[in-house]
Design a protein around this nucleic acid. Structure first.
Length: 915
RNA sequence: GCUCAGGUGGUGGAACUGGUAGACACGCAGGACUUAAAAUCCUGUGACCCUUAAAGUCGUGCGGGUUCGAUUCCCGCCCUGAGUACCA
């Protein structure tokens, strides 16, 4: 049989599905390996050629690890709650569950054609009750926990209540709201039940609080910080405004330090770690209190050493003390300024960084160390949301303060003898302090310590670590999400009974918010629970555990399964989840670890971000006001208009003129100005893949034409996995030819399968062992593209040798099978092996003897380093050298001051000298 | 502005710890087979010099440095992409 990929691939895909070849169970005799893809949101558009990139890579690793004797968990599911299905429901009235189900069907069909080795018995969907049952359950655990700073972990809320009862708040160190009451045990015990509950709410890891949120009126919901980009919603691009609302939040800030430290222990791409570090935004500094009349203005600073240079204070316009501090003379100035600031949108404010603006309140604070009067200003460069919303301005040491001082003519005091502040602030920490009271003459480190000690002594400040990260908002005013398992007793939120989970999403008649602006759940009949639902990231923050034990009704996964599978060894997905999913998942994982439900501190040991696949659009050039099209190289001679042309009408940038004419009525009678070789060459450009640009390449079409094995190998061949690159189908023929060649090598003229039982020659063994070694090394470092090249070289070599030895094919099929599983299974069967056994044979080890005889592998020592295949430019007489190993001393000796030329050293011998 | 990633033929990309740069593939040119096409196979293909061959010269964004030797290491600059942005 000729290489009939259609027949081969259909048969094997059917076989794998019917026999559940890739179903996996706990097997303590084997080491485990967990390969996971970020599960997709099933959108209606279906897959384009960029989506399977990561799936193919993870599938290669999964298949490879199976061959290496690992028990491999490689599942797939759907993140099926989300906005698009709900927007569609609002427009059409179709229930989101139906839309979602249809989309999943399409998705699955497309995935199946690629021949991925998923264990589909473990498929999950976040929108299914038996899944969100456990999302709700985890929510309850968070609600029932508090973060104890002393033990540095989350603990059940009962331990907090015990402490309150016996000692009051005195010995409690918790990450909690700022407005907790300081109570003795006696005072606590005298509080009413409601008052106690209100107080406890301030400690819970998921809590209800009035807070400033990102409100998106167009979507009718609040958004998390990572869902807002430049003041607009990430999905849809609608404007977002700040609004005060009662909202569910997750106390992720309790884990800030652990989330930061954990990054050091995991094998993730450096850019992702960097994004998370920035997002967490740790800065070490000090809190300083500036007394003003009866109260204090508290500021956070990272440069407490420059405190003697603080010549004024600046508050954010929204700061709560502004009204109180404004004197009657300054009242109108301040009010005008606040009004102007409010008018400016987020975007204006960001664009307008250069303009210095601000207003004087008329009040003065006392400098905590000198006691001098310090004027208090307000300005919009100070943000209400960071630190305390107030800064001590040190114009000599901070550029923004410097500009502000220059603009409003405020004093600038240098604090270090090395400072140069002629034209700008000097932020360096070198030199000795001047004009600085108790730290005059000291250097940076000592100065910081001394200032902090002094401030602490006076009760006017202390060292403090500040994080930029905020608690995560956990409510959405939407329908298509997990219901929050909470009801209200008066205004006290209470958990429903765990035994009654899951709390099912109720049916409603319309998916819009109510006329009074209530969330859609307010439309549900007899709904006595919380009306907002959980955000999109709830289900995805723990789903990898559910795959371990997807049908468990007693727990999110059983303890022994978690004990066996532990964590994800390899996680592949896009970099766009850096501050969302990947951070929340780490947070929930740490929480579950604290409560003893899971065993690992970090959920994803190794992470790989596959690059984005961009589109490659093709263009034709139409002569102005005519129906004539000019080929690419000729277009500059004429006045032309570039038009997008469907990439399916173009091959290797050459337009198929016949198809083009047929593609549209208006092109029927088109004329063409061609290249010299009578072809029409199209122009091209890299753009986002989209329907309107006619550049979407569908994997189904490619599979139909070349087969899944070719698609798989070609996607890998395209370039390094992590690199973003434009899709270009031009090279796919090369991979297709490779597979045909491979097939042909082991078939005779009449396409009968034919192998020789002779012992392979040395050259044949060498070829084989080179590829075994190469592929193994490449997969370990995720360099799939070079492996594909190596396969091509191998088959070229074997073709040259006319090698159709059984022994070679047996090994080759195993090595190639992770990349091109269908063709390999077929050949494996033709070799007389049991059908389907290929997935579980063991990976061949390469025999080093055949490689060591490689002429290029003889080591030569130069400059103390061992080299192979040396090329040394030296002036030498051939007969002067007989050594097989050259030392640097010998080289120097032979050099003898003469100008160097080339000597080629192979096998440790000088084989060629260029004088 | 800051941080990170990257810059190699006509194209995608190789070169793993410094050791014959351009593997492999596409494209292109020429050839074989064929009535023809497809398919397949063979040869050539960084640039310059040159009638040809041999040889030579230049070549990994630009300028310098270390080294016997640099795409790789160091310093400075330019460009592209990503992230982030008044974070005190």
């Amino acid at each position: 049989m000729e290489y009939n990929f259609r027949k081969i691939e259909n048969n094997w895909q059917k076989f794998w599905a019917e026999n559940q070849t890739f179903k996996v169970e706990v097997d303590v005799k084997k080491p485990k390996y967990y390969v996971l893809d970020m599960f997709p949101y099933p959108s209606g558009a279906g897959l384009h050629v960029g989506h399977p990139l990561g799936y193919i890579a993870s599938d290669i690793v999964a298949r490879f690890k199976r061959l290496k004797g690992f028990n491999v968990l490689h599942p797939m599911g759907y993140d099926s709650f989300g906005l698009p299905a709900e927007q569609y429901a609002i427009q059409t009235g179709q229930h989101p569950a139906i839309t979602t189900e249809q989309n999943i069907q399409t998705f699955r069909k497309q995935l199946d054609k690629i021949g991925l080795s998923y264990d589909w018995s473990k498929e999950l969907r976040t929108s299914e009750p038996n899944f969100y049952h456990w999302t709700q359950w985890i929510f309850m655990q968070l609600f029932n926990s508090w973060y104890n700073i002393d033990s540095n972990k989350a603990e059940p809320i009962s331990t907090l209540i015990q402490k309150l009862k016996t000692n009051g708040t005195k010995q409690i160190k918790a990450v909690c709201d700022e407005d907790i009451l300081e109570l003795s045990a006696q005072e606590w015990n005298h509080l009413s039940e409601d008052e106690q509950q209100k107080e406890i709410l301030k400690y819970r890891l998921t809590y209800l609080k009035e807070s400033i949120v990102n409100w998106c009126p167009a979507l009718g919901t609040v958004l998390a910080n990572d869902e807002v980009k430049d003041g607009f919603s990430e999905r849809g691009g609608y404007p977002v405004e700040q609004k005060k609302m009662m909202q569910w939040s997750m106390r992720i800030t309790a884990y800030a330090e652990r989330l930061l430290q954990g990054l050091e222990t995991i094998d993730w791409p450096e850019p992702i770690k960097e994004i998370q570090r920035n997002w967490i935004g740790k800065s070490e500094g000090a809190m300083v209190k500036f007394p003003v009349s009866a109260t204090f203005i508290e500021v956070f600073t990272t440069r407490v050493d420059t405190i003697y240079g603080a010549t004024f204070l600046v508050l954010a316009p929204e700061h709560e003390l502004v009204a109180k501090l404004t004197t009657s003379e300054q009242k109108s100035t301040i009010e005008n300024y606040i009004r102007d600031t409010k008018k400016k949108s987020e975007l204006d404010r960001m664009a307008d960084v250069k303009t210095v603006s601000g207003a004087f309140t008329g009040s003065y604070a006392k400098h905590p160390l000198t006691g001098k009067d310090v004027p208090i200003w307000i300005a919009d460069y100070v943000l209400a949301g960071y630190g305390t919303g107030a800064v001590m301005a040190v114009p000599s040491g901070d550029q923004r303060d410097y500009l502000f001082a220059k603009h409003f003519n405020l004093p600038i005091i240098p604090v270090l003898d090395s400072q140069n502040i002629e034209t700008e602030a000097d932020t360096r920490k070198e030199g000795k302090y001047i004009n600085s009271g108790i730290i005059d003459g000291l250097a940076y480190k000592d100065a910081v310590a001394k200032i902090v000690a002094e401030l602490e002594k006076q009760g006017l400040g202390k060292a403090k670590i500040n994080y930029r990260m905020r608690d995560a908002i956990f409510g959405r005013q939407r329908y298509w999400g997990e219901p929050v398992p909470v009801y209200f007793d008066g205004d006290i939120p209470k958990l429903m009974d765990e035994k009654e989970l899951p709390l099912l999403l109720p049916e409603i008649d319309k998916y819009l918010p109510t006329e009074t602006g209530e969330p859609p759940l307010a439309r549900a009949k007899d709904w006595k629970y919380e009306r907002s639902t959980m955000p999109g990231w709830a289900g995805s923050s723990w789903y990898w555990y559910r795959y371990m034990d997807v049908r468990n009704n007693q727990a999110f996964a059983s303890a022994d399964k978690i004990e066996y599978w532990q964590d994800v060894d390899l996680y592949i997905g896009g970099a766009e989840h850096a501050t969302g999913h990947l951070l929340y998942s780490r947070f929930w994982n740490k929480f579950l670890k604290d409560l003893g439900y899971v065993v690992k501190e970090e959920p994803f040991k190794k992470l790989i971000n596959q690059g984005m696949i961009q589109g490659r659009s093709n263009f034709v050039y139409r002569l102005k006001e005519s129906n004539t099209f000019v080929s690419h190289s000729q277009k500059n001679r004429y006045e032309t208009i570039p038009l997008h042309v469907d990439v399916s009408l173009v091959e290797n940038d050459v337009l198929n003129i016949e198809l083009f004419k047929k593609s549209r009525e208006e092109y029927h009678n088109a004329n063409f100005i061609l290249e010299e070789n009578s072809t029409y060459v199209c122009g091209w450009e890299i753009e986002k893949m989209s329907k309107s640009k006619f550049n979407v390449v569908n994997p189904d079409d490619l599979i139909e034409r070349y087969g899944a094995d070719t698609l798989r190998m070609y996607e890998m061949f395209l370039g390094p996995l992590e690199q973003s690159k434009p899709w270009n189908t031009n090279g796919i023929e090369g991979v297709y030819k490779f597979l045909k060649k491979f097939w042909k090598l082991f078939h005779d003229e009449q396409w009968n399968f034919e192998v020789s039982d002779q012992e392979p020659s040395k050259a044949e063994y060498k070829s084989l062992h080179k590829i075994i070694k190469k592929v193994e090394e490449d997969i370990e470092r995720f360099s799939f593209n070079t492996s594909v090249s190596a396969f091509m070289i191998c088959v070229n070599e074997l073709t040259e040798l006319k090698c159709n030895k059984r022994i070679i094919l047996e090994k080759l099929v195993v090595i190639l099978s992770p990349y091109a599983p269908h063709i390999c299974e077929e050949l494996w069967m033709l070799l007389g092996n049991e059908k389907g056994s290929l997935s579980y044979v063991s990976y061949p080890t390469f025999l080093s003897q055949y490689l060591e005889e490689d002429e290029f592998n003889y080591p030569v020592s130069v400059n103390g380093k061992t080299r192979t295949n040396l090329l040394l430019p030296l002036t030498l007489e051939i007969n002067e050298i007989e050594e097989t190993v050259l030392s640097s001393a010998e080289i120097k000796k032979y050099l003898d001051g003469k100008s160097p030329k080339k000597v080629i050293v192979v096998k440790g011998r000088i084989i060629n000298v260029v004088v």
